[in-house]
Design a binder for these strands. Structure first.
Lengths: 328, 328
DNA sequence: TTGAAAGCGCTAACAG
DNA sequence: CTGTTAGCGCTTTCAA
């Protein structure tokens, strides 16, 4: 049914070695025979069996990508760029979704390893010493994105701490005297890898502590942050709600509208990430741009370098930018 | 470096066949030896080489997914569900993005074929007789989603024509006397596979023709549909803008807001697809739900059936639903 | 320039 | 219950 190099060899009356030389543009073959072989291959509808090739070459030209899910806009944009860049470099992408489940993540890593992907781009939900040595034992190039594991693994992202610090500074400059910091992921600090969120929180704290002493602060880590917000009684301070991700900010905005609380007249609002659906909300949300395209492309570049040049791990920090909307 | 069944065999003083029986739970092995082998495998850190297995089994337990891009919410939600369902069934997902490029699509198909994926789920951009026979010659299970190719290939989706017909009916019931149909993809009719959009258009035409004779109709196929809309002079008819996809409706809504045209007071607006970001726009958009979750899961089920039971191709039609928002 | 043979790591078939 | 052998389709020596 399926035609192999052996079939071509027989059909042409040459050896498989010669067929291979023709098919893969390798030297040491008579142009005449090469032409014949190629024609025959074409005629017989030959298709290279990439698995067999991978088996002998010890390289699959594929990378594994492990993220939470694609409902999250960040990840879908990220993977859009990863796939594009990877294929440009000849690599194919295995996509696996963990749904933030630590066991599933490990299963995915295992499985991708068994399929011998050449490397991994992942946003880890696991963390800790054991996990680290587990990953190292894989002996496979890894690039982390979003959440960092440690300096032993490549990481591509922005400086979340500095960015959030800048956001706080931006808020205070607009004369806000009170900041409500909304970051439900923080509740999972003990449990999960929430590196980016932790960094943002650190930046926030540094901001309110260092920049100005008399800023009132309220921190909401509750998963039911809308309910929590509702409980807050309004006061005379000029207040801003600072969300550690746009998705929370969108929900907050929706809630505020439903309560006829005007943004920014009654309360300021600012997000983080600049996800693409912001384009359609009103008032336009002030936020911090997380350059997902650049991150995706850079992650692939870094991974391919590690795969092909056996390069060492590296941290690549991309520039963020405060995006001024009309919500603050 | 990497440990193989041969290594285990030697370490245990048994044959590779025995190791295989132990590792893969096959009958005909002494429980004692089995236990020993498994322990040794564990101890040596054995990992099965899935490529080698695939090579001999002729099955890779992987499927190829080919869609346009992940900026499109429909596709990211779709793939979210495909990945989940596929892995549940033991299949891994190769993701490839065509960016609506017909040549890239063919390259992807080719490449996935060479990697010997067990089947394909795709939203094709190509069409035509030649393409069909090309696909058939692949001799690989294929399930189409979004755009149909022909009855020779499995298709999972809604009845777009009927759904759009229902949408028109819904509009007319609200006493609208004029409908502006916005569907930029129609401009590509000759060139690309826009099956779903064509069906919707047919449903639209059937709706305005059959339901009521005196409905005024304006059709915009222009890619610059906002500019086209702007040129229209307002008149005394009660008018609705019917967009063949929510993404266009969102843009239209944005434009209308910018012009201080009230929705639905001044003009009605209705979309199609019910993409998830609608949640955050105001007024809430009336739309037709395209059950992407169900479609993703069904597509995988259908594909796996074709792969494993060598089932014939099938068309699976899922229910749509008109979702009443406040924009009409 | 070409051919022959070995082997990637696994599974399957048959013999013992 | 276990071992041996052959082979999946390809690449890569090493000889000729």
């Amino acid at each position: 049914m399926t035609v192999t190099t052996k079939d071509i060899a027989e059909a042409c009356g040459v050896s498989r070695g010669t067929v291979d030389r023709a098919l893969n543009d390798r030297p040491g073959i008579n142009p005449e025979t090469k032409k014949q072989v190629l024609q025959m291959a074409e005629k017989m509808g030959y298709r290279p069996h990439l698995l067999a090739r991978s088996l002998v070459k010890g390289k699959t030209m594929s990378i594994g990508v492990i993220v939470f899910d694609l409902n999250n806009r960040f990840f879908s944009q990220l993977i859009n760029n990863i796939e594009f860049k990877a294929r440009e470099q000849g690599y194919f992408v295995y996509l696996t979704l963990t749904n933030k489940d630590k066991e599933i993540e490990k299963e995915c890593i295992n499985h991708l390893q068994n399929r011998r992907v050449d490397g991994l781009i992942m946003c880890p939900i696991n963390k800790g010493q054991k996990y680290q040595s587990y990953l190292k034992d894989l002996n496979m190039p890894v690039v982390t994105v979003g959440n960092k594991i440690s300096n032993d693994f490549s990481y591509v992202g922005i400086n979340d701490k500095k960015a959030m610090f800048a956001a706080v500074k931006h808020i205070i400059k607009q004369d806000y005297r009170e900041i409500i910091y909304v970051s439900p992921p923080l509740a999972k600090m003990e449990d999960e890898n929430i590196y980016a969120q932790e960094q943002r929180f650190k930046g926030f704290k540094a901001g309110v502590e260092d920049l100005e002493r008399n800023i009132k602060v309220k921190i909401i880590k509750n998963k039911k942050y809308i309910a929590e917000l509702a409980k807050l009684n309004s006061n005379r301070n000029k207040t801003a709600i600072l969300c550690s991700s746009d998705v929370f900010a969108l929900d907050v905005l929706k809630y505020l509208k439903s309560k006829n609380i005007r943004v920014p007249a009654d309360i300021g609002l600012i997000g983080f990430d600049k996800i693409d659906m912001l384009e359609y909300v009103e008032p336009s949300l002030t936020t911090v741009s997380y350059p997902v395209k650049k991150i995706g492309i850079t992650a692939v570049e870094q991974l391919v370098e590690q795969i092909e040049d056996n390069n060492k791990t590296e941290e690549r920090i991309i520039d963020y930018k405060i995006v001024r909307g009309k919500s603050l």
